[in-house]
Computed example of a mutant assay.
Amino acid sequence: MDAIAQQPTGIPIAEVEQATGIARATLRIWERRYGFPQPGRDARGERSYPQQQVGKLRRIAELMAQGYRPGRLVQLEPAELAAIEAPAPGALAGRAHAVAAADDVVLDSLRSHDPVALRQMLELRIRSAGLAGFVCDELPRMNAVVGDGWSCGGLQVFEEHLYTETVQVLLRAHLARLPPADAEAPRVLLATLPEESHGLGLLMAQAMFMLEGWACTSLGVRVPVGQVVSAASAFEADVVGLSFTASANPAHVQRSLEQLRAELPAGLPIWCGGSSHIVVRRRVPGVQHVAHVRDIPAMSAPWQDRLARRISAASSAG
């Protein structure tokens, strides 16, 4: 048995670093960003990790060495991690190389602190892929590359913030150029609840809703549950859309969603996207999971049919 496995009070962070090969700075970053690992504290106030978490970290380190990304791995249970099979030789390496080559300019512009180059590159990708293609395909991949760079210590916090802010400013500029929604269009209210401070996913959803012709009202981030309820009534929302990242506290997410569902009218749908464990796997009753922003057009189909009927009825009446 390993020496570290014999310590009943938990394993110090220095020994966890040695046992897993994951730098202690990375462990602290994951703790803040993903909510895992969740160390206790020893008598001196230092981080101390349960053996089960160390075992999970070892498996995560093995999978990262095979090319998997940590952002997804830390959300899985140990049994799920154990079930992941090794990729075919060179498969993940080839994919990782292709992604890295495609996104070198993103990381280079961030590391060289060149926001002009970053914005120009993002503009080119929007022109090439179209706004929907950029939001559904380009942006999720770039988000993962930048997020992994930050979580592994390859990017500084301010560099990740530069990326996020540049993307948000650019997306808002493009959304402002879209034609206004029809007066009879379905209405969506977008927000994040108090436990979620990240707004990029919300903005990506707004782009897809607006491209589908929805009238969108976004309240931004950290909106109290009661205010979401009041706004849904004030704006006569047909759908309430929320977003949660993996870093949001799962217990808080669960409570807030249950409260929101109880206080909103029973017939008002709640659509919830993002990578929170609660949203993806536990599923709060009465809350519909949006697995990816590209699913929004298909989910919008019933409302688009309703819009077509409204317009047809208005034309007949005229």
Rank of each mutant, 00 (worst) to 15 (best):
H174R: 15
Q304E: 06
A65V: 02
P224R: 02
E80I: 02
V146T: 04
R44H: 14
A173V: 07
V239L: 03
L170D: 05
C216K: 08
S276Q: 01
H161N: 10
L139R: 08
A144M: 14
V284E: 10
L170E: 07
E123M: 08
L242H: 01
G153Q: 06
R261L: 03
A101G: 06
S218H: 03
V116L: 09
S312H: 14
Y34V: 03
A246W: 00
G273S: 05
A98Q: 13
L307I: 04
I126G: 10
A308Y: 07
L171Q: 07
E263W: 11
A207W: 02
S243V: 00
A132W: 10
L27Q: 08
V284S: 02
A98D: 08
A181L: 10
G71W: 06
S48V: 14
V279P: 02
Q51T: 12
Q7N: 11
Q304L: 14
C152D: 09
A237Y: 01
A185N: 06
N143E: 14
E195K: 00
V146M: 04
V157S: 11
A88I: 10
L211V: 05
Q51S: 08
E184N: 07
V239G: 01
L155T: 10
T217E: 08
C136S: 13
A232S: 01
F158Y: 13
M299H: 00
V105T: 12
R309W: 12
R33S: 03
L264G: 01
D104L: 07
I296C: 02
S315N: 15
L110Q: 07
M204L: 05
L171G: 09
A317N: 09
C152T: 15
L190G: 05
V16T: 11
E17D: 09
P224N: 07
R44T: 07
D305H: 13
F235D: 02
R47H: 11
A3V: 12
L211Q: 12
R119Y: 10
L118W: 13
P89S: 07
V116N: 05
A101N: 09
Q75A: 13
T245F: 02
A19V: 13
P186W: 05
H161K: 09
R47Q: 05
T20C: 10
G201M: 06
E15G: 04
K56N: 07
R119P: 03
V54L: 11
A43H: 11
L139A: 12
G67W: 13
Q206P: 01
I311A: 13
R111C: 08
A102V: 04
R119H: 11
R119Q: 14
A129F: 15
A96Y: 00
P269M: 05
L124D: 14
